[in-house]
C-alpha cells in the first residue's frame, strides 16, 4: 500500500501528507471531546510516519507508528478514561488567557518561518536517498551508539518504574488533603 504512495509524484504526496498532519494536529487540540482529540492525534502520528517513509527513513517511520500510535496513543486514551471518564469537559475547554497563548504561538510561527526562509541550509540537495537497512542500524546501535542506547534503556526503566510508583493505588487515601 505504501509503495503506491511512493510511486506518486513527490510534491503531491508531500503536500497531502503535510496537510493531513497539520489539520489533524489542529483538530486534536481544538476538539472538546478528549477521546476525539486523542484519536486525531493518532491520525497525525500516522501522517508523520508516512512522511518518514516517504523520506526513505523506513525504520524511523515504523518506530513512529509503533511507539506513538501503538503505545503513547493508547496510554493517552487510558489516562483520559481514568481521569475524567472520557466525557467532554465541563465549562470552557480553553484556558483563561487562551488568546494570549495562541497569539504567542502565531508570533513564534512567523518568527521561525522567517528564520527558515532566510536559512542557507535549505538550498542543500538531498543526499541520503538510499534507505539504511535495519541491519546497518542495529550494528550502529550496538557499536557507535552503544552508550546512548544503554542510557536510553536506563531512562526508560526509570521512567517505567517511576510511572508505576506514581500511579500506584495508595493503601489509604489521604483525608486531610483538600480536594
Amino acid at each position: 500500500m505504501e509503495g503506491g504512495f511512493i510511486a506518486m509524484p513527490t510534491d503531491v504526496i508531500l503536500w497531502i501528507l503535510g496537510g493531513l498532519i497539520l489539520i489533524s494536529a489542529v483538530m486534536s487540540l481544538a476538539l472538546r471531546n478528549l477521546i476525539h482529540c486523542a484519536l486525531f492525534l493518532m491520525v497525525c502520528f500516522l501522517g508523520l510516519a508516512g512522511l518518514y517513509l516517504h523520506l526513505n527513513a523506513v525504520f524511523s517511520g515504523l518506530v513512529q507508528a509503533l511507539v506513538y500510535v501503538g503505545a503513547v496513543g493508547i496510554i493517552l486514551i487510558f489516562a483520559i478514561l481514568l481521569t475524567e471518564g472520557g466525557g467532554t469537559e465541563t465549562g470552557s475547554h480553553l484556558g483563561s488567557q487562551w488568546r494570549t497563548g495562541i497569539g504567542l504561538a502565531v508570533l513564534l510561527a512567523f518568527a521561525l518561518l522567517g528564520a527558515v526562509s532566510n536559512s542557507p541550509q535549505t538550498t542543500q540537495a538531498a543526499r541520503h536517498t538510499e534507505e539504511p537497512t535495519v541491519r546497518e542500524i542495529g550494528l550502529k546501535l550496538m557499536t557507535d551508539y552503544l552508550l546512548p542506547l544503554q542510557t536510553i534503556g536506563l531512562l526508560l526503566t526509570a521512567a517505567a518504574i517511576g510511572a508505576v510508583v506514581l500511579a500506584m493505588q495508595e493503601p489509604k487515601p489521604r483525608k486531610d488533603e483538600t480536594p
Binding site: 497563548g101 504567542l104 504561538a105 508570533l107 513564534l108 518568527a111 521561525l112 522567517g114
Partner: peptide, 20 residues
C-alpha cells in the same frame, strides 16, 4: 504552568526575531 509556558514561548519568539 501555562503562564510560565507563555513567558517561555514569548522569550523563544523574541530570540527567533532577534536572530532574523
Amino acid at each position: 504552568i501555562q503562564r510560565y509556558l507563555r513567558i517561555l514561548a514569548g522569550a523563544l519568539a523574541l530570540v527567533a526575531l532577534w536572530i532574523i
